[in-house]
């Protein structure tokens, strides 16, 4: 039963379209890579797939039905900057168990140490925080993971640790994963297939990435 995006269109207020006519599907047990120039809406698509944003056009289907509006979302999003994704006023233990109580095996696989539980987020490094965020997102009810540049800000060793855990869980639980990244070698290593966002936007707004033109992508009007 796939996670599907059908004809997704999105823009903020009356601004230009960030996404238009995006079709994308992730099957259980599949790792799909998503690339595309900066500013083309990869993060927006990630937020829509995980139910953080409602598309203006098209819809997201999980097992053929809509995403739940309340309650635990089987599609979990992990962000690029973990320090923004944890409450700075909570000790790490509370953040970890916010959705479920991760088992010791998962904590061990992610090298999360019990001594960190009583720390505040500002006492841990980005790599350590991201391990917590991933553990938090991998509850038993999670069936799809949207990983938006989750290891871009991390060193190679932490990146490897994190992805090996995800790969193990994908195999064990038949999880589907959307991997958003700029890192080609990483995606080649991880993903079953790699999708370019430009190629799945049937009607895409502007071929502007980081270019020589003195205009941001969002300055384009259609």
């Amino acid at each position: 039963m796939p996670l599907e995006a059908r004809g997704i269109g999105f823009r903020y207020q009356r601004g230009p379209w960030v996404l238009r006519g995006v079709d994308l599907a992730v099957e259980p047990g599949e790792l799909v890579g998503l690339t595309g120039p900066s500013g083309l809406g990869k993060t927006t698509l990630a937020r829509i797939l995980a139910g953080y944003e409602r598309p203006l056009e098209g819809n997201v289907r999980l097992d053929g039905g809509p995403l739940p509006v309340t309650g635990y979302n089987p599609v979990q999003l992990v962000f690029q900057h973990p320090e923004k994704a944890v409450n700075p006023r909570w000790r790490m233990r509370d953040t970890l168990i916010e959705g479920w109580e991760p088992d010791p095996e998962l904590l061990k696989a992610l090298s999360i140490e019990r001594r960190w539980f009583d720390h505040w987020p500002n006492e841990l490094s980005g790599g350590e925080l991201q391990r917590f965020c991933l553990a938090r997102a991998l509850g038993p009810r999670t069936r799809y993971l949207v990983a938006d540049e989750i290891t871009t800000m991390l060193d190679a060793i932490t990146q490897t640790q994190i992805w090996h855990v995800v790969l193990d869980i994908v195999r064990e639980r038949n999880l589907g994963v959307l991997v958003i990244s700029h890192d080609r070698p990483l995606m080649k290593h991880l993903c079953n297939r790699i999708v370019d966002l430009e190629s799945v936007m049937s009607d895409f707004p502007a071929a502007a990435g980081e270019g020589e033109v003195g205009v941001r992508p969002s300055d384009f009007r259609i």
């Binding site: 635990y72 979302n73 979990q76 999003l77 962000f79 994704a85 006023r89 916010e98 938090r136």
Partner: peptide, 26 residues
């Protein structure tokens, strides 16, 4: 609009829970 508040919602937490645990301390 903070990510940690939005995550909480997707983890199935209710508005009241989020208001008292996330918002109030801030």
């Amino acid at each position: 609009t903070a990510e940690f508040v939005q995550v909480s919602r997707r983890l199935g937490r209710t508005r009241w829970w989020i208001a008292t645990r996330h918002l109030l301390p801030h």
